[in-house]
Simulated assay, not measured.
Amino acid sequence: MASALIALGGNVGDVRATFVQAIAEICRRADATLVARSSDYMTPPWGEVQQPPFVNACIAVETAVAPHPLLAILHDVERLFGRDRARETRWGPRTLDLDLIAYDDVTLDTPDLTLPHPRLFERGFVLVPLAEIVPERRIAGRRVEEALGAVSRDGIQPLPSAE
C-alpha cells in the first residue's frame, strides 16, 4: 500500500458537504483507507483573485492504486461534482478541485502528472492543512512543517467543525 496525500478545494456550492461526499467516493473508487483528514480552512483565492474565498483541506490515504490511475480517479470524482476542467477559467471558481500532492516518495515528471505537486511549496492553502495531518512527513526532502514556515498564512482561517 502507498501513502497518498490529496488536497481538496472549492468555492462554489456547499463545499464542505462536497468534501465529505468526495472523500467517500475517492476511498471507494481507489479502494483506499482514509488515514487522516485535516480541518477545513477558509482561504483567499489564489491566481484569479476576483472570486469568493475557497475552502481547503487535505487528506492522507493508503491505496494500492498507482499514481496515474489515482489521478484519473480524482478527475472522475471532480466531474461527478460538476467540475469541467476543459471549460473553466484557470484558478477560477470551482465546485471541487482535487490535487495529488505526493505519493510515497515517488518523483514523476510527465505531461499529465508531476510528483510531488510542482507548486506545493508555494501554497499556504495546501501546506496549512497538510501540516495539521502530516507535519513530519518529508516531501522532496523537506518536512511539511518546515516548508509551511516559508510561506504566507495570511487570510487562512480554520473553520469550526462541521459536525
Rank of each mutant, 00 (worst) to 15 (best):
T18Q: 01
V20M: 06
V20K: 07
Q21C: 14
Q21L: 15
Q21N: 14
A22H: 03
A22C: 04
A22L: 03
I26C: 07
C27N: 12
R28E: 09
A30C: 00
A30W: 00
T33D: 06
T33L: 05
V35G: 03
V35L: 13
V35W: 01
A36Q: 11
R37M: 07
S39M: 04
D40K: 04
Y41Q: 10
Y41E: 10
Y41P: 08
Y41F: 15
Y41K: 08
M42Y: 11
T43Y: 05
T43Q: 09
P44C: 10
G47E: 08
G47S: 08
E48W: 14
V49I: 13
V49T: 15
V49S: 11
Q50P: 03
Q50E: 15
Q51T: 09
Q51V: 08
Q51C: 10
P52Y: 08
F54D: 01
V55Q: 09
A57G: 10
A57W: 06
A57Y: 06
V61P: 05
V61L: 13
T63E: 03
T63L: 00
T63H: 00
A66M: 15
P67Q: 05
P67A: 10
P67E: 10
A72T: 07
A72F: 02
I73F: 02
I73N: 04
I73R: 02
L74K: 08
L74A: 07
L74D: 04
H75L: 12
H75P: 01
H75G: 02
H75S: 03
V77M: 05
V77E: 01
E78Y: 04
F81W: 12
G82C: 11
G82Q: 09
R83W: 12
R83P: 10
R83C: 09
D84A: 02
R85D: 06
E88Q: 12
E88T: 06
G92P: 11
P93R: 09
P93G: 12
T95F: 06
L96C: 13
L96W: 12
L98I: 05
D99G: 05
L100T: 08
A102F: 01
A102I: 02
A102M: 00
Y103S: 08
V106Q: 14
V106P: 07
D109C: 15
D109Q: 15
T110D: 12
P111M: 11
D112H: 13
L113W: 15
L113G: 15
L113H: 15
T114V: 14
T114D: 07
T114K: 13
L115I: 05
L115Q: 04
P118T: 08
R119H: 08
F121Y: 01
G124C: 03
G124P: 02
F125G: 04
V126L: 02
V126G: 01
V126C: 01
L127T: 04
E132M: 08
E132K: 09
V134C: 12
P135V: 14
E136C: 06
R137P: 09
R138M: 13
R138V: 15
R138L: 14
R138E: 15
I139Y: 05
A140T: 00
A140V: 00
A140R: 00
G141M: 12
G141L: 14
R143P: 10
V144L: 00
E145P: 00
A147Q: 03
A150P: 09
S152R: 11
D154H: 04
D154Y: 00
D154C: 02
I156M: 07
I156R: 07
Q157L: 14
P158Q: 15
P160D: 10
P160T: 11
P160Q: 10
A162Q: 14
